[in-house]
Amino acid sequence: MHTPSDRDVLCLRDVAFADAAALLARHGLELVAVPDGEPIPGSYWGEPEAGIIGPTVYVRGDTPVHSMLHEACHLIVLPPERRAQVHTDATDSVAEEDATCYLQIVLAGRLPGVGSERLMADMDAWGYTYRLGSTRAWFEQDAEDARAWLTARGLLL
């Protein structure tokens, strides 16, 4: 299996931090930059993956954009009372995980310099796996449940 490096995917250092912070702020989240080389608080998978604690997403310059969006979307799909209690691990169901993956692709389309196409390619490069063989195939052909889940909660506009 390919072990990707941060050079294989778009990282936070490659996009305007202010744009990423503004995107998350529209969903009631705060994006906090951690200095390079420092541990990332609340990182489930370890560095350079993003971390989450309450409504805060922690990243470094080498954090992949897909990781930042994925962790942010874990928080977005939660009701506010659950969001406030999150520390490191936010998922408690397959439906939430699928909704998170779908929403991160949608939000990438709203992040200047990223876009949904690039994010899906980065997700594949990083090792996300789907039964249809690619993130794009899943998103376009097999994500009806995730779309319905997000729509029912008013998270897709």
Rank of each mutant, 00 (worst) to 15 (best):
T3W: 12
P4D: 03
S5K: 13
R7G: 01
D8W: 03
V9R: 06
L10Q: 08
L12H: 02
F17G: 01
R26E: 15
H27S: 12
H27Q: 13
L29V: 11
A33R: 13
A33W: 01
A33D: 00
V34G: 04
V34Q: 04
V34P: 04
G37D: 13
E38R: 15
E38Q: 15
P39E: 13
Y44A: 14
W45D: 08
E47Q: 14
A50K: 02
I52Y: 00
I52N: 13
I53G: 02
G54L: 07
P55C: 10
T56P: 00
Y58D: 09
Y58I: 10
R60T: 15
D62L: 12
T63C: 05
V65T: 07
H70D: 05
E71P: 06
E71Y: 05
A72H: 01
A72P: 03
I76N: 07
I76V: 15
V77F: 06
P79T: 05
P80Y: 04
E81K: 04
Q85P: 00
V86L: 08
T88Q: 13
A90R: 01
T91R: 12
D92N: 15
S93P: 06
V94Y: 12
V94L: 14
A95K: 10
A95N: 12
E97T: 10
A99W: 04
T100M: 12
C101A: 08
Y102P: 00
Y102K: 03
Q104Y: 03
L107I: 10
A108L: 07
R110V: 01
R110N: 08
P112D: 06
S116D: 08
M120I: 04
A121V: 11
D124R: 04
A125N: 04
G127T: 06
T129K: 08
G133K: 10
G133C: 10
S134K: 07
R136S: 08
R136A: 11
A137V: 04
W138C: 02
Q141R: 10
D142K: 01
E144G: 09
T151L: 14
A152S: 15
G154T: 09
L155H: 09
L155R: 11
L157G: 15
